[in-house]
């Protein structure tokens, strides 16, 4: 569905949209990748997001082109964040993968962010992090 390079870029994006806590894994909460967001997205690419897979490919390729000569995944987290902030603001170069439709970058990034959040906040880690399940209430009358 995605090339190995695209998968690698996607993993890096997922972990910047929901980064691991700085204290992780000693304490705190994992980032999106470790919480299972890539598995969530792979499933969705076969299901509800199937129509968006070509857009994902284009977006991930363009991110790598924007990061050239490095790849996005090879950048330091701070540089990745800086690049994504530029994408968010539409401050991207017409060369590379975006083509002439520069509005695609911020618009599609917003969708990627929502998809990643869907994966994270429905995952066991995301649910435990916010304390959705009430450990103290669940056993009251059970």
């Amino acid at each position: 569905m995605l090339t190995e390079a695209q998968e690698r870029t996607l993993a890096a994006v997922v972990d910047r949209v929901v980064p691991p806590d700085e204290t992780w894994p000693d304490s705190g909460w994992p980032g999106g990748v470790e919480a299972g967001v890539l598995d969530y997205l792979r499933e969705q690419f076969r299901r509800d997001l199937a129509d968006l897979v070509p857009h994902y490919r284009r977006f991930l390729d363009a991110l790598d082109a924007e990061a050239a000569p490095a790849t996005f995944a090879d950048l330091a987290p701070e540089a990745q964040d800086a690049l994504l902030r530029r994408v968010e603001q539409g401050d991207v170069r017409a060369t590379g993968g975006w083509g002439n439709d520069l509005a695609f970058a911020p618009q599609f990034f917003r969708r990627v962010v929502e998809h990643v959040a869907e994966g994270f906040y429905t995952s066991p880690a995301g649910r435990r992090m916010v304390r959705f399940e009430a450990e103290e209430a669940a056993g009251v009358t059970a």
């Binding site: 806590d21 909460w29 917003r110 962010v113 992090m129």
Partner: peptide, 12 residues
């Protein structure tokens, strides 16, 4: 913000 450490911390 809709992404990044601040968004995650807010939810937590």
């Amino acid at each position: 913000p809709r992404w990044g450490a601040e968004a995650k911390a807010w939810m937590r």
